[in-house]
């Protein structure tokens, strides 16, 4: 019996040594004098202080108030001026990090936008107005964003988007061959935790049709941490006011646009046109207010002026470049006020 007692004592005593000591007052200065074990490299991160949070999931609604629309003539197509009471639609998006390491970050995204037009006049004669009233416009897109830091100061940023734009419905989908591919590549520098910038090039449809542009990335937070700038010129720029970590305000603009395949779904257009390409581009000058309403759920409210830059139609998709090919017909939309609100799940 004695043997058992001794064995148990020996066994238990080994575990008693595992008990951890309670926290004691510690000299933290020793932790400043340190280096990464195993010779690991440090890399710059993709954010500066107080940058607006990445939205994992976004459910939103976009609404433009009334405005005048002048639809142009072409051949047997007569022009028509009409009032558009509103155009509006859902905007859903997801953007999830799938690789998240110090030396590479990869986000994959998907989005669905719709835009339905409500006209004042019941008697629409212009084929584009008829199509917009009946089918609206939709976009379904997939995207990726790759951030590749080279070291603590330099990085690459690549973004690609694949958008299916048109007057399709889910029961009458359009060919994937009409997918619009756009992208941007930036080589940048992260000077410190409040400043990153870079130069690059983009293939974009933001002006409504294929375009190749130089781009400039600039994210900066002022030393006070109350103000900042978030910009990818010329696509968008905003002055940010950080009221708190959970309340942000912005004033800025975004150039928004794409090219839409508008099919002749119910003979709105003359038989000579199976489809046309609508080149839509608008400048949105806006105020945005974002706030965490509960933990990771953020509300975003946006209001501003929608300035129409282009709403013309080409017979087919092509790269206009520096050429001066005429549009099939030209349309003009008056400017309007717009609001956009969304509920967002933001990333850690």
């Amino acid at each position: 019996m004695k043997q058992f007692g001794w064995l148990f004592f020996a066994f238990l005593s080994t575990f008693s040594g595992m008990a951890q000591e309670a926290d004691t007052v510690e000299d933290y200065s020793m932790y400043g004098e340190a280096e990464l074990a195993g010779g690991a490299k440090r890399f710059c991160t993709s954010k500066v202080f107080d940058l607006s949070p990445n939205k994992l999931i976004s459910v939103g609604y976009d609404f433009q108030g009334g405005y005048r629309g002048d639809f142009g003539n072409q051949g047997t197509i007569q022009s028509q001026s009409t009032n558009i009471q509103s155009n509006s639609g859902l905007r859903l998006a997801a953007n999830v990090p799938v690789i998240s390491k110090t030396n590479i970050l990869l986000n994959l995204g998907a989005n669905y936008w719709e835009n339905f037009y409500s006209f004042s006049e019941a008697n629409l004669t212009h084929p584009l107005a008829q199509s917009l009233a009946k089918y609206g416009l939709r976009t379904i897109g997939l995207s990726f964003t790759l951030f590749k830091p080279i070291n603590e100061k330099k990085f690459f940023l690549v973004n690609g988007s694949f958008d299916l734009n048109g007057n399709y419905s889910f029961s009458n989908f359009q060919s994937l061959n009409s997918t619009k591919i756009s992208g941007v590549a930036v080589y940048g520098w992260k000077k410190h935790d409040r400043l990153m910038y870079g130069f690059g090039a983009a293939r974009t449809f933001r002006v409504g049709e294929t375009n190749y542009l130089p781009v400039f990335l600039y994210n900066y937070t002022f030393p006070s941490r109350k103000w900042g700038v978030e910009a990818l010129l010329p696509a968008r720029a905003a002055l940010r006011r950080t009221f708190s970590a959970r309340t942000l305000g912005f004033f800025g603009y975004e150039l928004e646009g794409n090219s839409y395949l508008v099919r002749n779904l119910s003979n709105e257009f003359p038989n000579t046109f199976n489809s046309v390409e609508l080149r839509r581009s608008e400048l949105r000058i806006r105020f945005t207010f974002e706030q965490s309403i509960k933990d990771f759920i953020w509300l975003s409210l946006q209001a501003g002026l929608r300035y129409n830059y282009r709403f013309n139609v080409d017979e087919k998709e092509f790269f206009r470049g520096f050429g001066d090919e005429a549009y099939l017909f030209e349309n003009s939309l008056a400017n309007s006020l717009y609001v956009n609100f969304s509920i967002n799940l933001v990333s850690p």
Binding site: E33, A34, L36, A37, G38, A40, S100, T102, P348
Partner: peptide, 30 residues
């Protein structure tokens, strides 16, 4: 590995999260 942690913070399910890679620190001997 002995000197690397993948720290994944997430909301509800792991899919809605972000991984941060932490490196072990070796204190310099004084």
């Amino acid at each position: 590995d002995d000197n690397t942690l993948e720290v994944r913070g997430f909301i509800g399910v792991s899919l809605f999260g972000r991984t941060d890679v932490w490196k072990r620190i070796q204190l310099k001997k004084k």
